[in-house]
Design a protein around this nucleic acid. Structure first.
Lengths: 213, 213
DNA sequence: CCCAAAGTTAAACAAACGTTTAAATTAAAC
DNA sequence: GTTTAATTTAAACGTTTGTTTAACTTTGGG
């Protein structure tokens, strides 16, 4: 085995598991599938993680920390106008979700189907923390009389929902958006800017206090 | 067995399978689970459907036809203004998806995880047909100079995505929207009107030609 | 009443599943 | 160099999986 691979076999298993879980689902992936694709012995998964379910927990915990920090930092910057903050959060969120869309596929699917209460709570808390950070931006803009009165929670659901639609149903939107289905990178390159523009335009109209009814 | 149950055992199996697939996923549900909850012999599922995967196909085909007709009818009504059509489609769509949210959960999850190309194509075609019908309403309003120029496909993704967020991540949004988590009916009663209001408001601002940049 | 078709059953099938074992190998500490 | 711990391995464990079998009961038409 090459020395570069040897460095962290645990991380390598996580990456392989992430891909398989995203493609075939948790129950649709066997530990033998993971072991084979990762080129490790079957027993190593129990050895490192204890069980298949613990492996999923480890995966979620590993990937979850990635986001929150950037969002919080964005909010602390007091010089930005509410509109600037919205634009930047859209930029950041679209990039982030495209970067680990496989993980977000797992989050969506596992949220619904897992029988483990711990995993479900884990996922809910991660999502809630992220949503709270976005919520601050909108309520802040409302206090400053820049944004109108809207349903804040459902506005977040619309932003997040738009994104999840695109990444979760890729080949559907490839056909709908008339983009040929190739690799991840080109899909992202073509779609990500378009989503950013759309979400900014959507939020600008939706939040603008001039559109108050 | 009561004569009412006897009427259509096949339909009963489909209903039970729909619930279990939605709750535990396709791979997370065994044919024995279905047989037990439906109170039928294990072999009856092969007898009626041929296989577990054929059962899923039968379920999708059975549930899919339900929607399209109403959407088409709505579009033919020429007396309605584009705004009326938007409002009515929102009303209809929200109600429809709440009515069979379990089925839509299965559609979302299976779209991503199935290894069967036929099922994937089946789901894509159902969704594309539905989306085409919505698209007509928006492009019609644009032709009549009532709606501004927007990204039509992504606007649909936003509407559909908002809804899927709410029905797919129920207990998350129960907590976020501060609604206690009880049965389906009360959840729907409290949330559905709120979603309708939000989506109409969102689309009104987003589509209005007066907000043209 | 009979008999072929449809429906239903318990039992069995091989394959795949997650996990464990106990022996073998490698690494690190002294 | 020896010893202890960590890593890796092939094999096996007992379940559960989807599906099939072959016998049994029910049904409806002639």
């Amino acid at each position: 085995m090459a020395p570069t691979e040897k460095v962290d076999k645990r991380a390598h298993i996580l990456t392989v598991a992430e891909q398989l879980f995203a493609d075939n689902g948790f129950d649709g992936t066997s530990v033998r599938d993971i072991a084979q694709l990762a080129n490790v012995n079957l027993a190593m998964i129990s050895y490192y993680f204890g069980s298949k379910e613990k492996l999923l927990e480890a995966l979620i915990e590993d990937r979850a920390g990635y986001t929150l920090g950037i969002l919080e930092e964005l909010n602390k910057n007091q010089t930005l106008t509410p509109w600037d903050k919205v634009d930047r959060q859209v930029e950041h969120y679209v990039d982030k979700i495209f970067n680990n869309y496989k993980f977000h596929c797992i989050m969506s699917q596992q949220y619904n189907n897992t029988r483990s209460t711990e995993i479900k709570e884990l996922i809910i808390n991660i999502k809630l923390r992220n949503l709270e950070e976005i919520k601050k931006v909108i309520t802040d803009g409302q206090k400053k009389k820049v944004f109108r009165k809207v349903d804040v929670e459902l506005t977040m659901a619309s932003v997040f929902g738009t994104l999840m639609q695109i990444v979760n149903s890729r080949s559907l939107y490839c056909r709908l958006l008339k983009v040929e289905e190739t690799d991840d990178a080109t899909y992202r390159k073509k779609i990500a800017p378009r989503i950013k523009t759309h979400l900014k335009q959507l939020l600008r109209a939706h939040l603008d206090i001039k559109n108050e009814e």
